[in-house]
Every structure is written in structure tokens, then in C-alpha cells.
Amino acid sequence: MRISNENKSKLDNGNIYNQQSKLDTLGIDSTKKVYSALKDKIDVTLIDEEYINDVQRYWEKRMGIKIDPVFHIYMQQNFNIKNKFFLPEVQYRLIQKSFNESKKTGAYTDKNLYDQIVKTNRQPKIYLKCVNQRYFINVNIPIKKTQITTHFNNIKDQSEFIIKPSRSANGRKVSKLIFDNNNFTLNNRVVSISELEDLYGKNFVIQELITQHSLLKSMHPSSVNTIRMLTFRWNNDITHLMSFLRIGIDGAINDNAGTGGICIGVQDDGKLNSLAVDESGNKWLNHPTTNFSFQQETFIPNFQKFKEFVIDLHHDILHHDLVSWDIAVGDDGEP
């Protein structure tokens, strides 16, 4: 029996309606970015409704609202992991607001303040700050715009730098900047300081291009591949909650998942998980650019020191109890 195009269209529409109805019943918002990213990795017909209902009861009891369980479904169907304790991003943001003073967030996100707020010499050296279109060097000594070229001519040990907006996040507009023969070069084009102002606005920072550990470099050499580490203060006791490694791809200089990078979990002893994922939920047994194998047993060197490092730094962050750190592995294996 042949089905007419009209009847086939009705069947298709009916299937779409039934699928959308099921998504609505389970609390999955199909208009959200996370669903769009993961929908091809999820089979709606195979959703374990009993498990999802258990997830909903757990979080409704604790937060008084229904959560979107799309990530729980993705993890179950792609990794065979059922864990109601997974915290969806929307709920994480709510919890983050509860533990962090939102009025102070602006100061803590300004990279031109990091050398003042974060008391460690193990952070990239800042060579030039632009703050409200005023310039500073050497721990906030004012410098005239006309003196910047002379300042960089006096830097003898480095010709490659990193330039980035000082008040944005997620790897936006992070670029490599070269200074040679009295000229700055950005993306293979000679640029003036005024042109940098046009591109980066009134607030940006030029800092050291650090040398990372050979292990991290072998994964993707053109990006500094950092460990995202989360620390939490509770009753004045600060603990390390979790970590994952972010790795760039395709020759990019930044490692953020939101700009195309991949992520891989780091266990509490520093061992990497056996596969990485990207923002669209794709799984990678090998790095898509360098073919570095995540199946081999790999450890972040001195990982206990890394945990102690971020816990110690958190003691200076007084207004935020929940802090995310991006920590590089230096060429000496130290954080």
C-alpha cells in the first residue's frame, strides 16, 4: 500500500507533535541552545522516563523548580551514566548567584586587576594595560601612548605576546600579537596602537605568551591548553570540587569550548578521562587535529600542587565562594 504525500505529511506532523509533547512532559526546553547542540545525540523514543522523573523529584525537592534534564539524558544514552546529581547550567547559575556577590563580579572579571587581586607570581606577566584608554606598565606606572613603542623595544626576551579584551570572557578576541622592528603585527597585518584601540576598545591587556608543559603542548601546540578548576568555600573551608582540561583545535590559539575547543575530564589524582567532548556533544578518542590519543593513560603532572594552588589563591577572593580558575601547566610542570 502506498502512502500519499498528504498522508505522509500528516504522519510526520503527528510524530513531531508526539515528540514535542514528550519533551514538554519531561521538562525539556527544545528552544534552548543546549538542546539544539545535543538533540542529534539523543533518541527521544529511548528516554528512561522513570530515571528522568527521579531526577526531577530530586531537584524539585531541593530547589523548588523543575530542571531541564536534557544533559542527564545525553549522559545516559551516550556514556551509560545515570546520575541525578548532575547540575544543569541554568541551576548552576542560580547557585552561583547565591554564593557570589554579583555587585563585585565586574572587578573580579577585569584582567587588568589580576596582578593586584591574585597574589602569585605564577601568572602571565602583563606588559601593557589599557584602562579607559589610559596606559600603564610595570605594576600600574602611567605611560604615554607615544612611549609604548619604546617600551616594547626595551623588552629583549620576548617578541610574541597575547592581546585580549580585559573585561570579557570565553576567549573572545584573544589573539597573538607580534612586536618587531618598531611595529605591532596582528593577524599578519601591521597595526598601530590607535588601530588596536579601534579593535579592542578602551580596555585591553597585552601579556606574556607563556611556555606550557611538553605534555600539554603535544596535544595542540598553538593553544595554551588550560585546566578549568572549580573551588568552593563553605563554613570558611575551601575545597577543590572538580577539574577538566580544555584543548584548542585546528591551530586556534585559544582553548575555550565555546570557540570550538574540546574538553576532557580530570580525575582527582590528575588522570585524564579516556575521551574528550566538544560543545555539540561529539566524542573524541583522539584529538581531531593532532591525533593525540586520549585512550593512553595520561596524568597532569603534580596535580596535587594544582589543587593546593587554587585553594590557596581562593583565600584572597573574599566576595565569591564559588570560583572557576583557568590554570596552565608551566614548562616546569608547576601551575
Rank of each mutant, 00 (worst) to 15 (best):
D43Q: 10
I67S: 01
E89S: 14
L113D: 05
M63N: 06
N112H: 06
R62N: 15
V55C: 04
T109N: 13
R57G: 12
K84M: 08
K61L: 09
V70S: 07
Q116M: 10
K104E: 13
I126D: 05
Y51R: 00
Q91A: 07
Y135L: 09
F85K: 14
L94E: 14
N132Y: 11
Q91R: 06
Q56M: 08
E60P: 01
Y114L: 11
I81W: 00
N140W: 09
T105W: 12
K129Y: 05
I81P: 05
Q96S: 15
Q96D: 13
I65E: 09
K111I: 03
Y135H: 06
I52G: 04
L113V: 01
K97Q: 10
Y51W: 00
G64I: 10
F86I: 15
N78L: 03
Y74K: 02
I137L: 04
L94V: 15
N78E: 10
I95L: 10
Y51S: 00
M63A: 14
I126M: 11
H72S: 01
I137N: 01
I42E: 08
C130Y: 07
T45H: 10
Y135M: 07
I73K: 02
Q133C: 03
V118I: 14
F71A: 01
R93Q: 07
N53Q: 09
I117Q: 11
E60Q: 15
I67H: 01
K84F: 08
N138F: 08
R93T: 08
G106D: 15
L87R: 05
N53E: 13
I73M: 07
M75P: 03
R62Y: 13
D48F: 07
I95H: 07
V131N: 10
N112A: 10
D43L: 13
P88H: 01
K103R: 11
E89H: 12
P124R: 02
K111V: 04
Y114C: 11
R93G: 04
T120V: 04
K104M: 12
F86L: 11
Q123W: 08
T109P: 02
Y114N: 15
R122E: 15
K66P: 00
L94F: 13
V90L: 09
Q116C: 07
D68P: 03
Y108P: 09
N53T: 11
T45L: 12
S102P: 02
F99Q: 14
N138Y: 07
I67L: 00
V44D: 04
D68S: 08
A107Y: 08
V44E: 12
